[in-house]
Design a protein around this nucleic acid. Structure first.
Lengths: 207, 207
DNA sequence: GAATGTGAACTGTTTCACAGCC
DNA sequence: GGCTGTGAAACAGTTCACATTC
């Protein structure tokens, strides 16, 4: 099993290799290093962990390498996602994702507000939260994006897990708890901003 | 200098301690562990690295501990931020940040669209991108949030760095390059979703 | 000669485990 | 007994450096 950090880098390589494929057929680790900012040794190590090999003569064959990464990362069919909480952030994400189909589709959204339920908002059908179970089952939903207010996050998460969701992206500041078998990623923007503020303030004052 | 990971945890402790302060005056590491999901040893180690000490009898004094964290993390005055790119995501972030004042204020936004420049959008004065330098200088801006389309990210970033910004949060998928002395955090949502999809699919199938 | 593939070394982070304290 | 504080061990992630290959 590849580590979280390795996966993040592979996802990045994949995107960059897609760009490169337009211009050329082979690439060296030091070139990928230049494009990604990771060290060449790191990149060779990652590619090794995929089980793919290049040659000293011409480096890595871009198309083959990319296919190898895709095989590891991507499922055969697209990912079906839902989004809970159609507020400002929720709507922004819905709009953003219109551009990423079909690899990632948000196929339904949910809100507890009866004024939103039943309408199409930001290009996505909004349901009332009580229909959660039915939609997840019918549409074979695998991932959920949580953009409700922090106080509601744990309740919504519990309901999602109960209904068989096992991958979550939580945009609320609440640190919700999930069973071990469920994978959750917290994207706490406030925390990220505080971190940047800290390191910007305490930056190395050389150069 | 504290590490990135330690800082992230400290920011979380701070928020949780603020909650706890309403109910009680002292807390044990294992209680903080329960609330945060990090191990008790980890928490003791982090607090040690702050130079703060508790007592075996009653654990850590919440108010003192929180003040210690704040001294490390927060500047005396609030952080002035700007946001570049008033699209969907940009507007969502602007709205979201209205609630976080005064610790973090987005004091201006910028866009290359002349229809947006001059208006107040999502509670924030929008300027044309060419006024960047003037506003940064006048308003003592320290941090910038980049929410432009990926293709424009590097150009905007260069302009920001040129104008003396040394902390950036980049929401575009582009991996922009900055000088060593500038701190940048990438929040690539697409990448995060792919990662969650991967780990959700390859999850441990026990329990 | 310049690249890959990789054992070994190194660096950073987390956990263990226990002395010391109340 | 149950807590903190912390050296030491364990683990994870990255880089080094070099034998090997084209």
């Amino acid at each position: 099993m590849l580590s979280k950090k390795t996966i993040e880098r592979l996802i990045l390589y994949k995107k960059i290799l897609e760009e490169c494929a337009k211009d050329t057929t082979h690439i060296y680790s030091h070139q990928l290093s230049e494009l990604t900012g990771f060290s060449a040794a790191q990149i060779r190590r990652d590619i090794m962990s995929l089980g793919y090999s290049g040659t000293p003569k011409s480096g890595y064959e871009i198309k083959q390498l990319n296919d190898t990464i895709k095989t590891q990362l991507e499922p055969k069919k697209g990912i079906n996602m839902i989004l809970i909480g159609v507020g400002n952030l929720g709507r922004a994400i819905l709009t953003y994702f219109q551009g990423l189909k079909p690899a990632f589709s948000i196929i339904a959204s949910f809100d507890s507000d009866l004024h939103k339920a039943g309408r199409v908002i930001s290009g996505c059908q909004c349901h009332h939260i009580k229909e959660l179970g039915a939609v997840i089952e019918n549409k074979n939903v695998q991932l959920a994006i949580v953009t409700v207010p922090g106080a509601e996050a744990q309740g919504v998460t519990d309901a999602l897990v109960q209904n068989g969701i096992f991958g979550l992206v939580n945009f609320t500041p609440a640190r919700v708890k999930v069973p071990d078998a469920v994978f959750i990623e917290h994207i706490d923007m406030r925390l990220q901003f505080e971190k940047v503020a800290y390191f910007a303030r305490n930056r190395k004052v050389n150069s």
